[in-house]
Amino acid sequence: MPRFFPVALTLIGTLLFGDGAYIHAKAWLAQVLLERAFDRSITTGAAVKPWSWADTWPVARIEVKRIGASVIVLEGTSGQALAFGPGHVHQTVDAGERGIAVYAAHRDTHFRFLRNVAMGDVIDVTRSDGKRFQYRADSSAVVRFDESGIDAATQNAELVLATCWPFDALASGPERYILHATLIETGE
């Protein structure tokens, strides 16, 4: 019996390591495929799925250069989409348009960088049609999930990045972190 334990522990450890390595390899490959699909979308002017069975496609890239953050945004906020990147919330405008473009992502993955965004930081958004927009972070708030305070009737071009709060929580809760930014420049 004592010989069985080291062999069993080694086997279990190998399986757990392999599972963890598989998840990281899958995430890395997904990001490579998302980048390629986004670049092809800009080149062709058409939505390009990152893999044939995807139920979403890249619609934008968000960058905060001061902190080295860059993420590809996907269409929609289904569980599938949010597993691979931030999602563009349906029924909100595209970046650069009059109204509020809302993007949401998980706090522990794709929007982890929001904790490091300072008021006044420039947020660059490149849409899949190649149009570029710069926003300046001007406020943030912690709100209940059902009381965002987002003014959908605004006549300005605004951006909201939303994620769960608090950043270090292990379980989901009712609060959301909302980062608001206002359009400062277009580079169409």
Rank of each mutant, 00 (worst) to 15 (best):
F4A: 15
F5G: 12
P6Y: 07
A8R: 15
L9A: 13
L9R: 10
T10I: 14
T10C: 15
T10R: 14
L11R: 01
T14I: 11
T14K: 02
L16T: 02
A21I: 01
Y22H: 11
K26S: 11
A30V: 08
E35S: 14
E35Y: 07
R36M: 03
A37D: 01
F38I: 02
D39Y: 00
S41G: 12
I42N: 03
T43R: 12
T44E: 01
A46H: 06
A47S: 11
A47M: 02
A47N: 09
K49F: 00
K49W: 00
K49Y: 00
K49E: 00
P50L: 00
W51M: 00
W53E: 10
W53F: 06
W53Y: 01
A54K: 08
P58H: 06
R61A: 11
E63A: 15
E63Y: 07
V64I: 11
R66A: 14
R66H: 09
A69T: 12
S70N: 12
V71T: 13
V71D: 12
V71S: 08
V73F: 01
S78I: 07
A81N: 08
L82Q: 06
T92V: 03
V93R: 03
D94Y: 14
E97G: 09
G99V: 01
V102W: 01
Y103C: 03
H106L: 05
R107P: 10
D108N: 14
T109D: 05
T109L: 05
L114D: 02
R115C: 00
V117L: 10
A118R: 15
A118W: 07
M119V: 14
M119A: 13
G120S: 04
D121R: 09
D121F: 05
V122H: 09
D124C: 05
T126P: 03
D129I: 07
G130P: 03
K131D: 04
F133R: 10
Q134A: 15
R136L: 12
R136E: 15
A137G: 04
A141M: 06
V142P: 02
R144S: 15
R144H: 14
F145H: 12
D146P: 06
D146C: 11
E147F: 09
E147V: 07
E147A: 15
S148A: 05
S148W: 06
G149W: 02
A153C: 05
T154V: 07
Q155V: 12
Q155W: 05
N156C: 07
N156S: 15
E158M: 13
V160L: 06
A162D: 03
T163K: 08
D168N: 14
L170D: 03
A171W: 08
A171E: 14
E175R: 14
L179A: 06
L179Y: 06
H180D: 04
H180M: 13
I184S: 12
I184P: 09
